[in-house]
Design a protein around this nucleic acid. Structure first.
Lengths: 344, 344
DNA sequence: TGTTCGTGCTAAATCGTTATAGCGCGTACG
DNA sequence: CGTACGCGCTATAACGATTTAGCACGAACA
């Protein structure tokens, strides 16, 4: 019932636990343990299927070989995929992952951080909620290895890995303009998340650069936490309020999905009556007819870089800050088409 | 830098660590610690922000308050959602979750089980891969709390929570028949997974019950692990090979998605030229035009029941086996429509 | 012959907690 | 007046590993 411990091996081999520990940690040579004894121990360990108790080891060494992953919502396509790669990559370094979702809720995020501290995780991967600054600062000051993901806190210099939100949104706007769309709207959330702001900024910068306009009334903010129905009905009202509207940019995929529903309910044809383009890809966008053009995040690269940066921190305590910004990719599908320019 | 320990509190309070432990574990009354001392300790603990070291606690008590979650693919919609609820529910009981994906690969599954054992998890939630019987048996014999999920091993009586695959598929078939479809095909995988077999069995049982037929040539098995392109081209060929085909049942959602692609590539109209119905729901099915009819799993219920059963095991070692089978729900959308029966 | 050194191993402390056994003191009881 | 008991608390061992310091022995050297 109980596991095999180092003592059991020691007893059976007729040596001390110390010797067993040395051998099993590959320090046999260094600690001048004879080959004879070494082999006996190794054989015995294999025979008894010895599994070192990570708790005991962690208690002694201060390292749990565990990292904490705090995301907004593990059930979300983006984060679920990140979680998968993170787990795979962490595993290569012998680390396991404890995860939790914040729902973008400060209180939940605090709770998660606290629990992860209890559990002595060696490092943190965090998608920060709004107003998490103080907690991040504390973590930073206590020199805990940490990487932010998907967003960053402008006031606090930390490691982070994210997509270039500004550029991605900029490209989206430029693409719409290039295709000849003229009455372009934007739908975002009320949330103060930095990445949403940057998408907004990128989009509006591109509009300005091309002497197009993005007046306030062409922008709709959907309250964060609105239900499906609420969101859709708000988007419908918004669209109705803008005669001649010919393209809509959504700052994130779930808004884009609401957008599809809304446009359908209005009886408009996507790609014909109105162009849709969204930040973030989704199975739905790929397989929808017509396909929905989007600005995709390089999920694999993000996850890999996150682990890379974290492992750097974990292995060598240089206090150099790593900030990785990865390019977003415009994926062109049929929801945006070349439009004959109306001659002025 | 280093955390506050029980000793620090003891020193500052002028009492022994034992006393501190008693108080902080709510055993003050039971252990007859005076209110005076109790309060002093509690205050001090709050002031110093004492966080019990779960490693040490775990080492001593033998409980890590951690559960291992082994799924086929955490990035998959179904498992990601389960993972989310599992984490939330586990949290209510003070448990944290370590996860990993098997990719339905026996070797990976073994690796995960081993790592979770190292880490002394208190219980396991497992989506077994094929041929994992021996390992599950070992776990069972060592009386580790464990729940299987999504599938079970027919040869080994264990706790499990799953959807009623047979009934779900049965309902799907009956629904198609009821609507008047006559040339009905089924697409599944080559995988030997029990749930796929049961879906197949349920579907074919319903067909038989209604004196419809499901000959071998109306069934297509897509190799597990086929790429998107391979799968789609195989389905296309399959459809081409059956003139007059009017409905297709897919035994799981990713097959259904391939099916949508295939039908589109063939230039057929879903719901008009051919009806589609799939096991498992998906955002895509809900938002697709036309909506795709499906047999949905009660994801929340599954996850909640999993935790329920596991917590039962964890808290009281009754060796009674819990097998929960939850009903699947037929969600009717436009991909299947009432068909005028051709008069015989 | 006495000292030094290398070899091969081990004793014991330690990490932070919990759990068991029990200590010293005052009071009550026969 | 002796003892039994309740009270409030503590000493200590233990969980299973790692790590530091060092022991015993034999060989080599002066």
């Amino acid at each position: 019932m109980k596991g095999i411990s180092i003592k059991d091996i020691a007893k059976q081999a007729g040596v001390s636990p110390t010797t067993v520990s040395f051998v099993l940690n590959g320090k046999a040579k260094e600690k001048r343990i004879s080959d004879q004894v070494s082999k006996k121990i190794l054989k015995l360990a294999a025979k008894l299927k010895y599994k070192p108790n990570q708790l005991a080891r962690g208690l002694r060494t201060g390292k749990t070989k565990t990292i904490g992953l705090i995301v907004e919502d593990i059930a979300n396509h983006f984060f679920a995929n990140v979680a998968k790669i993170v787990e795979e990559e962490a595993d290569k370094f012998g680390y396991k992952v404890l995860y939790g979702s914040t729902e973008d809720n400060l209180v939940k995020a605090r709770g998660l951080l606290e629990v992860l501290e209890y559990r002595q995780v060696d490092g943190y991967i965090i998608t920060p909620t709004p107003n998490l600054d103080k907690e991040i600062e504390v973590l930073k000051n206590s020199r805990k290895p940490m990487v932010l993901m998907d967003r960053y806190l402008p006031q606090i210099p930390t490691n982070y890995v994210m997509v270039n939100n500004f550029q991605g949104a900029y490209d989206a706007a430029e693409y719409l303009i290039e295709l000849g769309y003229q009455k372009i709207a934007l739908v975002t959330t009320t949330s103060e998340q930095i990445q949403m702001k940057e998408r907004f900024n990128g989009f509006s910068a591109a509009m300005k650069a091309h002497r197009a306009n993005l007046p306030r009334k062409m922008c709709k903010k959907i309250p964060f936490g609105a239900t499906n129905e609420e969101a859709v009905s708000q988007i419908i009202e918004f669209i109705k309020g803008i005669p001649g509207l010919d393209a809509i940019f959504f700052t994130t995929n779930y808004l884009g999905i609401y957008g599809i529903e809304s446009v359908k309910e209005l009886g408009m044809k996507i790609g014909e009556d109105v162009a849709l383009i969204s930040f973030d890809d989704h199975d739905l966008f790929r397989l929808h007819t017509p396909g929905i053009t989007c600005v995709a995040q390089p999920i694999h690269d993000i996850a890999r870089n996150v682990i890379q940066v974290l492992m750097n921190e974990l292995n060598q305590h240089n206090n150099q800050i790593n900030q990785v910004v990865l390019p977003a990719t415009l994926i062109k599908r049929e929801s945006c088409r070349k439009k004959a320019k109306t001659v002025a």
